[in-house]
Amino acid sequence: MANSVSVNTNSKDLWGGGVEPYKASYGKLMMWFFLISDAFTFSAFLISYGVIRFKHPGYEGTLSDFSFSQTYWPVPEKVFEAFPFFHGVELPLVFVGLMTFILILSSVTMVLAVEAGHRMDRQGVEKWMIWTIIGGLTFLGCQAWEWSHFIHGTDAGSRLLDGSIIYGANLELNQYGPPDFAAFFFFITGFHGFHVFSGVALNFLIFYQATVGILERRGHYEMVEKVGLYWHFVDLVWVFVFTFFYLV
């Protein structure tokens, strides 16, 4: 949005102020620096998941003989195989795949909102922002269902070493495998889910500001771009969570 700001390009005055470093506005630059620090946080989460997983023995046998046990790390596609309204049907990773598609699509609608903003197309921004918000809320709803299923567990549950049977998961014990497995599930998908939630809140704020004409009076839609960066980052993190938590 450099067209709304006069940029001083005389190299003698570079240190005199009024020059945008990297030709990016202050807000966008700061959003990028925030995102890189957020990326470090998520990297630390995922890498420590890898470390703790490496620390536990892996499952050795074939997938068809797999059963939950406290003595080895579970195979993710055996844990996440439930789908709403298909009780008892094994659909490995289908639900989490659907969630991935929903988040990618809401990222696409966000790009379209940014594009509409560049053209000062207020109706376009409104339309695509509302789709982005719907996508985000759908993802959150899916995640709520997945958490609920994970916490309540399967019908059979799983036998602990002392002979008792546990159903589902909490922060101390879970039917799927070592306690750390559920702890990491809650922390990684929970931290990501909170990012999605705050993303939806920011998207709604921008949608509101576009709708009542605040952004139009300001003369540019750069706020859509800044919040868009955050929203794409949330999608980016999910791409990594999907691979390293659910697929590998």
Binding site: L105, L112, A116, R119, R122, Q123, G124, G213
Partner: peptide
């Protein structure tokens, strides 16, 4: 803040740009 009728006419969309976004999708 009361919603107001927009007086700004949006620029037309560049079809190539939109198509490229969907292509990445």
């Amino acid at each position: 803040i009361e919603p107001e009728v927009s007086t700004i006419k949006p620029q037309p969309a560049d079809k190539n740009k939109i198509w490229k976004i969907w292509w990445v999708a």
